[in-house]
Design a protein around this nucleic acid. Sequence first.
DNA 1: AGCCCTCCGTACGCCGAGGTATGGACCTGC
DNA 2: GCAGGTCCATACCTCGGCGTACGGAGGGCT
Lengths: 187, 187
Amino acid sequence: MPTASSRLSRDSWIDAALELLLQSGPDAVAVQPIARRLGTTKGSFYWHFSSRDDLLRATLARWEAVAGDDLIASVDARAGDSRKKAETLAEEVTTGQRPGELLLLAGTDHPDVAAAVERVARKRIDYLARQLRSSGLTPAAAQRRALLVYTAYLGQALLAASAPGVLPDSARGRRALVGEMAELVLP
Amino acid sequence: MPTASSRLSRDSWIDAALELLLQSGPDAVAVQPIARRLGTTKGSFYWHFSSRDDLLRATLARWEAVAGDDLIASVDARAGDSRKKAETLAEEVTTGQRPGELLLLAGTDHPDVAAAVERVARKRIDYLARQLRSSGLTPAAAQRRALLVYTAYLGQALLAASAPGVLPDSARGRRALVGEMAELVLP
DNA sequence: AGCCCTCCGTACGCCGAGGTATGGACCTGC
DNA sequence: GCAGGTCCATACCTCGGCGTACGGAGGGCT
């Protein structure tokens, strides 16, 4: 929060924008609020960016890297067999989901948003499918069931954000749900 | 689109607002756009409603009735055994979902929205659980699996809105996914 | 020292939203 | 036919967003 270096870079803006994107969704990526948060003004912004849409695109690109490749790489680096890895990704998707991220997924007319969302979803599902194949499923079954598992986790994240009362109260109970889904999907 | 009766009622406004809510989410429930769509002005609006929030609350109440009780009653009235009914509800939730409805579910800070969403989710899940019990599951298992089924369908609706490319192209393929989920969840 | 290029603060215009005030059209009952 | 209530159009205010113009601070180079 301090005036780190008095002089801002393009990345400083993207960092703050990503934080707001994950917190409150794409509509929160607005120039003036971010400027206030950074303790600066629009004069700085329009030197680093050509428009608000320019910032949004850059922020989405950063999100895509973090939520897609980085997350998968982090999951894959941890110990465990295929099933454990699939469950870890599930855990990340359900509990690690930031509120604004769901607003991204909930569909926006912005074409760049839709494209980024689709690429991230595909990467995650393909990763799940690879783990399921390693656990013995045929490629076709693994693909179908990876989709089922991923949608179940997305739905759980959705309910956690909007209707937490219908989910188990305890983190243990919610993990048990994840486990039961894995149980059902594996032979 | 015609000037139906030149004179508008409170319900006319709620009808139009619900349409926009389901189409583009709660932020789209705005006075002036709806007035334009109805071919009238704010002068009419502020006679029937005290504020924009008044309209939003009324629209949510209507949505809750339609998406909750009415939908379940409609599904339940159709022919079929418990499993068929559960699949029918699934079909409605996945394919019948309007884009704006997901924005409601994706979490909003508005307390009235959150409360309405939670009630609707609970009704649907409880209905699913009743069908699963009728199919032979124990009450506890039925409740857990109803939750899994519902989240899988919500997630599918989410992907349909934001990343349709990762879902099967054909309606047949998507129905097959629903069927596979039912298969997995029943003993 | 003088210059230039980088970076940012200030002030402005535009638009579209929420909300208010007011007057007038139109029906309704007496 | 006329008085009063119902319904709505117009004009106006504020606020907050996007985008632009312009000028000035500040450091590096010669």
